[in-house]
Design a protein around this nucleic acid. Structure first.
Lengths: 367, 367
DNA sequence: TTGTAAGCGTTATCAG
DNA sequence: CTGATAACGCTTACAA
């Protein structure tokens, strides 16, 4: 392939993408003329006819192979291969009220923490044969409600949230689903069903403790106004009070869209008449923004200003002087949640419906 | 609430999570005794009975309100509110062969680039009334095949991939679905259906050009062995050749799991008898790892070693001396893909089924 | 504009 | 162990 410059919108340097034609993990499918046309419509009846059994036997052979005699089972599996049949999950779910889809809803798809939890959870559930799909609620009650409403009819095998459901009507709706519900990322007394979380209030208190231990005397808070942000702030303020730390101010935001929000909030914190000696940022992305903005302003960290982050971010650790954080192991959270869900899905309700994760202090250079 | 230390596994500092009981975006649902029991089973017939119309009229009132008289429509909507009814998507999909779910599959849930594209795409599709769900293929043909197989029966409204499908059998399977298919992130000549991408080959060539322009004479490559990594490597090698840059070596990896992979590959690159003057890392995460490891080893960047990244990462830009990258605007990619999908879903096939994004060079300090 | 009838593809139930 | 039958909740096609 010649390397050519793109001259205008219609002259592309195409990628010569490899095409793999061998059996590459996919079961072979027979094609030819009409066959291809019908491909999308192989139903259980076709397989049954080919295998010379009743449809219900095909169904059984695929769900409970041990309940079908070996010879029929073999004939059926062969017919499945030949036709490329796969169960229509809508029909299956409609009739049985069950599906093999586990739905997870993240407040934000772009959060490193949520992603890593979801990825770990996905790994566990996919290994157990479930299809793990992730939706987004965008920290919006409306979206959350819409999602839960559709859930209500979609009847997935289980649902998970990167958070705790606050709207009473939604909690009620979820209870009505009759499927395992996993809430995470906080420690309410009354989870809907199952919970793998940690105490945000305690995290805030620990943040105060860390700053106090380092000798800071006055501090401000930067974070989200509602939800877990509010919990961390609550714990932080009470911690400050208990330790005699001066709480200078709080700089809140409704929704975090990127590091620029952190930059802006740092500026706000520094424009106060009384400046804090240190900052607790209850959110990774905001902390990152503060760190960047501080460097841009030639504020020496931690000498001029201490910054304590929340979330145990790998990457923030690498931005000089390294963000000191308090947080959790989010991959562990995901794994635990996945395992608890599987236990619940397999009929054996887990011994504990609640798991509380340890908070992790990661000392880097920023306080 | 008292702040208490966690003494043992059973003593938690609970979060006093807010519960919102008012109408907070959720439509009110009537509960009482048996009602609650049946909550999960409100079907179209129940609504029809309450509104004193036939089920089909309810269906129409919800899908094509203009085809139902105003008074009945109102009665029906009121009945829907009262019962908390929502359409059973399985029954709907089973009968109509359509659904309002758009499925996206990401190679990796934890990629900043993919997340931002998916988030942007989700925003577009959710505004148009679709439920946007994301699954993961983990850069694995097997998982991809499994995902596509389930798709094949699940019949979502449309599907999107953060990549291009390479297995011919899977391409065939997808064509058979008869729904809009969006491939992204590369520029093959023969997309299955629609494509919003860019040329990885050209990106590699441009990387060579950037390094050459900065005066480097010998370079190595770090990246994934297959897929787009291979394409970028191809373009890079050819670019080097064309410009007279000495290509010292390539350091490949099958699957990127984190920055530590980058650290390891940097070490590999530096342990060669002939050391390159600069490195092209065809992946953000790997580039980040290289940058970190170089700092740890006190290798001065860019004086001792130049590092050029791929992907336009916000965060890598902030790690001193700032990663210079070539990449794309992934949010733009997501938005364009979403809009093209909507055009296709609304029956008006988009004028163009292919969109090629500009490559963006972001000069920071690392070369 | 509204309704009737039929069936989408699967699985629960129960009889053999 | 196997199969006949009915039904899941909805929407298409057609009729009124």
């Amino acid at each position: 392939m010649a390397i050519e410059r793109k001259e205008d919108e219609t002259t592309f340097v195409y990628d010569e993408v490899v095409r793999i034609t061998g059996a590459g993990g996919s079961k072979p499918v027979l094609f030819d003329g009409r066959e291809r046309e019908k491909l999308a419509r192989v139903a259980i009846g076709d397989v049954a006819r080919l295998a010379e059994v009743a449809p219900i036997t095909v169904s059984r052979a695929l769900r409970n192979p041990e309940k079908v005699s070996a010879d029929k089972r073999e004939r059926i599996l062969r017919a499945v291969e030949q036709t490329g049949y796969s169960v229509n999950p809508h029909a299956s779910a409609l009739k049985s009220g069950r599906s093999n889809v586990v739905l997870a809803f993240a407040s934000n798809l772009m959060s490193e923490q949520f992603s890593s939890a979801l990825k770990a959870c996905a790994a566990v559930l996919e290994d157990a044969g479930y299809l793990f799909l992730v939706g987004q609620t965008s920290y919006s009650y409306e979206r959350e409600t819409a999602a839960i409403r559709s859930l209500h009819a979609m009847k997935p095998a289980a649902v998970m949230f990167t958070g705790v459901i606050e709207l009473e009507t939604n909690r009620e709706l979820l209870r009505g689903l009759g499927i395992p519900i996993m809430e995470t990322w906080a420690l309410p007394r009354d989870p809907i069903d199952m919970l793998v979380g940690f105490s945000n209030t305690e995290a805030g208190r620990r943040a105060a403790e860390m700053l106090h231990r380092k000798g800071y005397r006055s501090v401000s808070y930067i974070g989200r106004r509602s939800g877990r942000g509010a919990l961390r702030l609550q714990g932080f303020r009470r911690g400050c009070e208990a330790l005699g730390l001066t709480f200078v101010g709080e700089h809140l935001i409704d929704d975090v869209n990127g590091v620029s929000d952190g930059r802006r909030l740092l500026a706000a914190a520094l424009s106060q008449p009384v400046k804090p000696e240190a900052l607790f940022c209850s959110n990774d992305v905001l902390a990152l923004g503060c760190l960047m903005e501080a460097r841009r302003l030639n504020i020496r960290i931690p000498d001029d200003l201490g910054i304590l982050g929340f979330g145990e971010s790998d990457i923030a650790a690498e931005i000089p002087p390294g963000l000191t954080t308090i947080g959790i192991d989010s991959a562990l959270l995901g794994r635990e949640a996945g395992e608890m869900l599987i236990a619940s899905l397999s009929g054996t309700p887990p011994a504990l419906n609640l798991k509380c994760l340890e908070l992790i202090e990661s000392e880097r250079g920023s306080i």
